[in-house]
Write a protein that binds this DNA or RNA. Sequence first.
RNA 1: GCCGGGGUGGCGGAAUUGGUAGACGCACUGGACUUAAAAUCCAGUGGGAGGUUUCUCCCGUGCCGGUUCGAGUCCGGCCCUCGGUACCA
Length: 821
Amino acid sequence: MKYPFAKSEKKWQNFWEENKIHKTDLTDLEKALYTLVMFIYPSGSKLHIGHWYNYAPTDSWARFKKLKGFNVFEPMGYDAFGLPAENYAIKTGIHPQDSTFKNIDDIRDQLKTMGCMYDWDAELMTCVPEYYKWNQWLFLQMYKKGLAYRKNAPVNWCPSCQTVLANEQVQGDGTCERCSTTVEHKSLTQWFYKITNYADELLDGLKTIEWPEKTKLMQENWIGKSFGTEVTFKVDGHDKEIKVFTTRPDTLFGVTYLVMAPELELVQELTTEEYSEEVNKYIDSIKSLSEIERTSTVKEKTGVPIGAFAINPVNGEKAPIWIADYALATYGTGSVMAVPGHDERDFEFATKFNLPIRNVILQDGTSEEDKLTEAFTEVGTMINSDQFTGERSDTGKANITKWLEEKGLGETKINYRLRDWLISRQRYWGTPIPIIYCDNCGEVPIPEEQLPIELPYDVDFKLDGGSPLASNKEFIHTTCPKCGGSAHRDADTMDTFMDSSWYYLRYLDPNVSEEMFDSKLADDWTPVGMYVGGAEHATMHLLYARFIHKFLRDIGLVNSDEPFQRLIHQGTITNQGAKMSKSKDNVVNPDSFIQEYGSDVFRMYLMFMGPYELGGDWSDKGIVGVDRFVQRAYSLFDSNKDLAKNISAEDKYELNKLSEVEKNTYRKVNQSIAKIEVELEHFRFNTAVAALMELINSLKDIDKCSEEIRLYSLERFAAMLAPLAPHLGEECWSILGKEESIFQQPNWYEADEVALVQDNVTIIVQVNGKVRAKLDLPVDSEEDTVKSTAWGEEKVKHHTADKTVVKEIYVKNKIYNIVVR
RNA sequence: GCCGGGGUGGCGGAAUUGGUAGACGCACUGGACUUAAAAUCCAGUGGGAGGUUUCUCCCGUGCCGGUUCGAGUCCGGCCCUCGGUACCA
């Protein structure tokens, strides 16, 4: 009989809902396990295969844990603010709020067909005032602690559309995706969070969390802590100074010029009149370059001198000051000392512009007279360096820094690549920033009791020229909370990464209104036990969330140091090699597969496709294989449906009391349990499914087993099936006469260790590393027995004939390699 | 460019510490069942050469080189590809 999946899946979904099977009792803390997936961005393309690939296997893991007796909390929600809804509005005129709510309703329906054990009472969305109020509240706490501040920062500006563009909206050639005009950089005053204050702690905390090594490595590199020296260069004939950060103070005598980032304000002050035209022209010319282009080591570097000279503190030499694309205002001090002899970029630049190249670190085995043909960046002996000449360059670093410190011309310095978090967005669909600008008092934070500052519905988000909120006069014009005078609100909204930095805390009670989240529950349930989401979030979302969590701890709202204890990345499912996205129009919708095969088959196929952390290119080629398996599993139970009426199975059976067929069955069942348990634990779903397929293949002879062994096997099969195919698992469980949901109790079975022990083992016999025989011998056979059996093999004789044995390698129960010559 | 992944049959992939390369599945081929087809079940299936019921040998995990009795696995150097690169989320 064919498995009526459509009827069955609906039946069990209703059963779960009616019996509140997935409602988590958050007061039960014994074996509490918070399992979380990255919440959904509710775009119009609804759920695609990538979402299923994230959620369904994670749910299978959660269900496995549930079967093992954990009190699992698995919520789902919507990351509802963001740019795409706004772009959609600009294109279609449909208001972001309307499209977002509509999308959420559609997506919720889709989610329910997956059959995940989401606790729907915990559902949340970020675009409602009840949620984003707390973004504003958090902003005020940051502000109070001095961690929110304003400074100028560049945005992508399309001069034709008169609007700020996201990086994504800038095409590869640096033009606007709407009108193909070349995009410029424009400086705006914007809000930042001082994440850099937490740089060291964010680095140290990595040691305490169980995340993929690669993710921790990426965060480490992103934070980019480096130890070096800040050197002060005086400017010739000027009272200004230029500070540079260098990790190579030992090369200070090799400085032949200085490079400043073109956008530094100091550049304007230092540029001499003679050079100013050239300098301004140059600054204009690089306005459209991206940072990636500017720092590329294959692109030819550009730059111009500004006419001023810096004085090298160690020898008083005058070095010309240049501005160049490869100096970035965002790293270090924005200025670099150039040592062409010992830095590859400087070497290239100096060669191009005929600037002097001086050798001050002598490579071992070379002579001072040898001309440098490329930058020497390794450790060597310091030369041409006055009193430091003769020192090794690695120890010279500290000495030269000490000398600078004594003269007040430098100091040791730790520098980070990490930059402060720019949270201002010149967009509508986000959280309004709770700041007012008063004509008298200036910048005034809105008092907490006036929160939320609600996002007004009526705006002209097509408005050219700036933030859409500026178009709503009623919203913008307000009175100062301090003096009551005329004032205006900040027209920007917050980066949506704010929303996703604390949602996992809100899930615990999304309806709490007097605080950001239930602090008691947060202490009990965080850090999150298992967090699953894409690796593309490795450095941004996952770093921001860690930062916010630490800040919340510092203001006493949580007691843990990290938000996510364990982390797994699902791989990306591509379509014809490309990441699925609505803009590429290559999104694969799973709905038709659900209709044809059902949720269980589809989610099991996703798990079977390959290693979870790798992902891969989408193809539905093998889905019929999983469907066949599901059909076979169902008929296995269906044909044994009368089994449980008269008997029950023991927990264990003694092997020697079983028939040969029963023994094999019993062994295979227990081996499968042991295998699948380990595989599921480590998110290796593909091999777990394969093991279950192997098991069903070897249950062919189950009819030859006693009823008890049949029941024993089927109960265990149902338990292994249930996490992978939850609806079918329930169906099979109920066929065995069980009345409760399989997930109601800890229904995972432990493997019988006795059944895992093998009698025989295959020993490989090699001659010169090539397999020549395979011996099936009892486990732990004597070395002599193995060797004499091996030498009895025809092929071994053949390949060793007329040769001398020079070496033998014997590994017990594994291999016997004979090396001959 | 920089940071981090990945590359194994016709296809998706498997392979505890270096120790049988190709589990499981798809596709394909042959067979059973059927009037027939579908479905199902059984068998075969990395490539090449020879022997042709049972067999034997060689090659083979992106490329080049190294370490080792033995390398998909470790080391060095490349190539290709994917993710991120601070305003997609």
